[in-house]
């Protein structure tokens, strides 16, 4: 649920990075944080375990610039990917404006990808959202690893509706901004329609 403040001329949108454990959601945000000019970002907050697994969420506020005199802010969140943190995932999805599904391209993570995507759909539905009507993009991450599944195969399983999708290596940043830009654009287009 975007928040339009006519008084301070600001618009705030919430983007959630979803995906199985260790697929690289936090790494995506870390890269965006590293590469964004200081004046365009706030502090990145990571509520993580001692082993750097996301426990509740990561949060990164971006203030990218103005459109038509309105300051446009995006609040980026990641969910904890580990299966047993489902209650937390549901909370983070509240008020979401756009979703990035980060898939792990490794063959042995395919089942985890599928399970996480079903979980996303289910949790959204529980809150009255329909993934097919939400600004939504898919990222195939860890393309740098040897022996990953071909994109075609991933696409067939994880992106049957053909939303914008991107290959990425979040560790080096490849594909990270392309992904973010794509979902941001879909959100703004959605706003333009005025819902």
């Amino acid at each position: 649920m975007s928040f339009i403040n006519y008084a301070s001329r600001e618009i705030n949108c919430k983007i959630v990075y979803y995906g199985p454990g260790l697929c690289g959601k936090t790494t995506n945000l870390q890269y965006v944080y590293q590469k964004t000019a200081p004046e365009a970002k706030g502090k990145m907050i990571s509520l993580a375990t001692e082993t750097e697994r996301t426990l509740f969420f990561d949060f990164l506020p971006l203030a990218l610039g103005e459109i038509r005199g309105f300051k446009t802010r995006f609040h980026l969140y990641t969910v904890p990917g580990q299966v047993f943190y489902d209650a937390s995932r549901k909370l983070i999805l509240k008020g979401v404006d756009g979703v990035v599904f980060v898939a792990d391209s490794q063959e042995e993570r395919m089942d985890a990808n599928i399970e996480s995507l079903e979980n996303l759909r289910f949790n959204l539905k529980e809150q009255g959202y329909d993934l097919d009507r939400l600004p939504y993009v898919v990222q195939y991450n860890k393309r740098d690893l040897p022996g990953v599944l071909p994109v075609e195969e991933l696409r067939q399983e994880l992106n049957p509706t053909g939303v914008p999708d991107f290959e990425a290596c979040a560790a080096t940043g490849e594909g990270v901004f392309e992904t973010l830009k794509a979902v941001a654009k879909l959100i703004l287009i959605d706003l333009k329609k005025g819902r």
Binding site: I4, I11, L64, G65, I67, R68, G69, F70, T72, F177, K181, A184, K185, L188, I189, L191, K192, G194
Partner: peptide, 16 residues
């Protein structure tokens, strides 16, 4: 009165 009604692709690209 929605400010984004007339937003263009260029506007969006410029943000990034």
């Amino acid at each position: 009165e929605f400010p984004f009604a007339e937003i263009t692709d260029d506007d969006i690209d410029n943000l990034f």
